[in-house]
């Protein structure tokens, strides 16, 4: 295959894959945030059992490679006779993994909120959920923004692993293109450039948002 042909087929195939990659990453990041919040809440709860369960979950999810979690989620249900859709397994594995890391990030964020604010909110008779939504989360999100953006970048990179269970994201599409063109060097270089561009963009916009948040606090 000559160079112009190769370039056009790369341009036709890979950007669509990048969109799938970004979509799945974003979905997993949001699901992971909910899981992280839940784990964090359990970890901070006075209930001994909840504290212990969350501790074990966080330790396991942080200690087991994401590829192995993915294989577990994909193959174990099939061993029990259930059909696991590969996209669901992929999002679940990514979300569980990032959730455990986000839980630790959020815990540090919550710990940095002065206790007096909570006492004041209780004294004013605000409901728990309202305190979380209107008082805690806005501050915690602002404080932990850089780490959360970092998690998103790691997530985008980890999402390349879901190509193993045949989700047609960026890397899977590149593999398919290589199978047709026999040009691994060129195709995978293009793949790497796309991943790099996506991550640099996420880092850049994360910085922008963070600066705006800081400016808002100062002003």
């Amino acid at each position: 295959m000559d160079a112009p042909h190769l370039l056009t087929s790369i341009i036709h195939t890979l950007p669509g894959g990048l969109l799938v990659t970004l979509g799945i990453s974003l979905l997993s990041a949001v699901a992971g945030f909910v899981i992280g919040l839940l784990l964090c809440w359990m970890r901070c709860s006075p209930l001994c059992a909840a504290h212990a369960i969350a501790g074990v979950c966080i330790s396991a999810l942080r200690g087991i490679p994401i590829l192995v979690v993915l294989l577990l989620l994909f193959y174990l249900p099939s061993a029990a006779g259930l059909e696991m859709p590969s996209v669901l397994a992929a999002v679940l594995a990514l979300a569980l993994n990032t959730g455990a890391f986000q839980a630790e990030i959020l815990r540090a964020g919550f710990a940095s909120i002065p206790r007096g604010q909570l006492e004041a909110a209780y004294a004013l008779g605000l409901q728990d959920l309202r305190i979380l939504r209107r008082i805690l989360l806005p501050q915690v999100l602002g404080l932990t923004m850089p780490q959360l953006v970092n998690e998103l970048i790691i997530l985008v990179k980890n999402s390349s692993l879901i190509s193993v269970i045949a989700v047609t994201e960026l890397l899977r599409r590149s593999e398919q293109l290589v199978a047709v063109t026999y040009r691994p060097l060129e195709v995978y270089t293009a793949t790497a450039i796309l991943y790099l561009a996506a991550n640099l963009f996420i880092a850049w916009s994360g910085n922008k948002i963070h600066q705006r948040l800081i400016a808002g606090r100062a002003g």
Binding site: K157, S160, L161, Y188, A192, Y195
Partner: peptide, 8 residues
């Protein structure tokens, strides 16, 4: 640091 290990 910006590309997945698998791609590398």
């Amino acid at each position: 640091r910006g590309t997945p290990l698998l791609v590398q």
